[in-house]
Amino acid sequence: MNGLSRTRPPWLATAVVLLLSAAIPAAAATPGETIAGAARSVVKIYGAGGVRGLEAYQTGVLVTPTGHVITVLSTVLDSDTIDCVLDDGRRFAGRLIGADPRRELAVLALEGEELPALPLAADQPRLGAGSRVLALSNLFGVAVGDERVSAQHGVVAAVVPLDARRGAYEAPYRGDVYILDCTTNNPGSPGGALIDWRGRLVGLLGKELRASTSGVWLNYALPIDEVAKAYDDIIAGRATAPATTATERFDPAVLGVILVPDLLDKTPPFIETVRAGSPAAAAGLRPDDLLVAVNGRAVPSRMAVQQTLGGLAAGDPVHVTVVRDGMIVDCDLGPRPAREGGR
């Protein structure tokens, strides 16, 4: 890894980016030309897997002419040999040179020169909902050898923080992603290129995950600026520890709010009693009030109340929204104490 960062320092990436972006036409190409141009940089990746429903293949994108491929970090890369097949059928052995476990991205190195790369332009503004996009990936592994990866089209449906899981596995990345109106949640798609209709790389297709709240399968991509940050960190050898996902819970009893006992999986957070003299009493909360939001975040369950309070820093103002007699009532509870029990 050190050797690589010596031969190709991070500033060079930026230089290459500027050079290449200048060469991209504004909007002249037909979609066919746009797709053909970008697909040259999309790599079919074959590695470990093939058991227990885990695929042994995924997609990656060449981001430097000297053979750096960005892809998603997955069990596919848990292999001594990672086969990388380019658009023209050339086959390279990929070497894993580093990974960002929080964003779940990895960089592979191919031994090549003057390879067709799509620049990682980190300075692009984020796309908004409704932006048209194209997804290029080896979904279901249907493209082999010099066959071009599949192109799909759609729009960005929403830009929201990722809250996703697959079974017991919870995605560590909690930043914004592009939710896509495009069925990219398929075996083989992770690591594929998300491009705009001008042919620019705008994101990287994410893993096969479900939304934590609704359970629907997610079609999403990591925005290009996050991808570029991960790339720069990996190339520079910076350690990127996974974010702590387990939020500390904070009992609202500390604020004087005693909720009804937790009898069901998702007990609605009704207030059972309000302790006299507490911040809750001062704010006017009453028994039988139903908590619906803490600091603007919906709290459909007792646990959600504890987690949302736990996610605040000590001293952050606590603002709760309750339903009382069919009306919405907002209350300020003042700063959140540092620790439970006031220690």
């Binding site: 629907v216 609605p268 919906a298 369950s301 339903v323």
Partner: peptide, 22 residues
Amino acid sequence: IEPGAAAATVNAGAEAAPSSGP
């Protein structure tokens, strides 16, 4: 439309809300 909480005010059964997502 928020899920869950208000819905459960009048339907305490186990099948109160079909989805926990908004």
